[in-house]
């Protein structure tokens, strides 16, 4: 990635001040920057709309899902805030059925479904309310591949997006997160955050740009190899009929969280 979003904005701003680019010039530049973000590296993984399938048959116990969570939180330097559960920061975590799909409870549903650890993460909604409400575009949907991104340097910490997200996918840094990151495990390639900004799963855009799959997907694959099964997290392009996620969606019965809200989540669950 040769130019990040901030630098682009500076250049775009400068060029419009200098009168180099009018609106069209800026748009063209923006498109080329967007393109460069995903295609600069020839190995980068690209898609029109990224999606994830969570196959719950592969997540029976903690040892199946915890590696995925740990991988995500480690590569993204997610603080492990333990002293006050109210200040918890999490990008991926388990919830039981009744909490993951509230309103669908049924007291007679088989026990095994009631206690399944459904993995929660940002749904990268096609129509994301968090983006709609953000007053600074600090959270925005990347046009090229549908990832709902965070610009933690622009976020003013108003937390409107947290009220707006119907999935509880967002965390706020109620205090300086750095003391809660294990230094020995810190990933120097991913920025740590400061207090007062919101964060969430960014679908590993930084890894995709390098041609790597999301950290949680990679971890799920490792677990699968150990267990001799197929991985519980499948990642792919929703708009590519030949992609693996599409293949699964065309064969298996899948559900999404709160589809009635019209957000169109990109995370699917197979029970």
């Amino acid at each position: 990635m040769s130019m990040n979003r901030r630098e682009f904005i500076k250049i775009a701003g400068l060029s419009s001040i200098l009168g180099i680019g009018g609106v069209t010039g800026v748009t063209a530049l923006k498109n080329s920057v967007e393109a460069s973000q995903v295609s600069k590296n020839p190995e980068a993984l690209t898609a029109k709309r990224w999606a994830m399938v969570v196959d719950m048959s592969k997540f029976a116990s903690e040892e199946d899902f915890q590696p995925c969570i740990d991988a995500c939180h480690r590569v993204h330097n997610v603080p492990h805030v333990t002293d006050n559960p109210k200040h918890e920061v999490k990008w991926m975590w388990p919830e039981t059925y009744e909490h993951a799909f509230p309103g669908n409870e049924d007291e007679y549903r088989a026990e095994k479904y009631q206690h399944m650890p459904f993995l929660m993460l940002c749904n990268h909604c096609e129509n994301p309310p968090c983006v709609r409400v953000c007053p600074t575009q600090a959270t925005f949907k990347r046009k090229s591949d549908g990832i709902v991104m965070m610009d933690m340097h622009r976020c003013i910490g108003c937390r409107f997006c947290m009220a707006g997200c119907p999935y509880g996918a967002r965390s706020f840094n109620y205090k300086n997160p750095r003391p809660f990151i294990d230094e020995s495990k810190e990933n120097p390639e991913f920025p740590t955050r400061m207090k007062g900004v919101v964060e969430k799963c960014t679908l590993c855009y930084e890894r995709l740009a390098k041609g790597l799959e999301p950290a949680c997907v990679e971890a799920a694959k490792e677990v699968a190899v150990k267990k001799g099964t197929t991985p519980g997290l499948i990642f792919g392009d929703l708009e590519d009929p030949a992609s693996e996620v599409r293949k699964i969606l065309s064969e298996r019965f899948t559900i999404r969280r709160k589809p009635e809200l019209g957000t169109s989540p990109s995370v699917y669950y197979i029970i």
């Binding site: 983006v131 709609r132 409400v133 953000c134 007053p135 600074t136 575009q137 600090a138 622009r154 976020c155 003013i156 910490g157 108003c158 937390r159 409107f160 706020f172 840094n173 400061m194 207090k195 007062g196 900004v197 919101v198």
Partner: peptide, 29 residues
Amino acid sequence: FIFVDLGQPLRVLNVILHPTPNSVMFYDM
């Protein structure tokens, strides 16, 4: 009250620097 509620109060001008007409907060301002 809006100001004291911000997590990053020094960046409050971002609301004006990056006007976002789809956010109700923009109109409220």
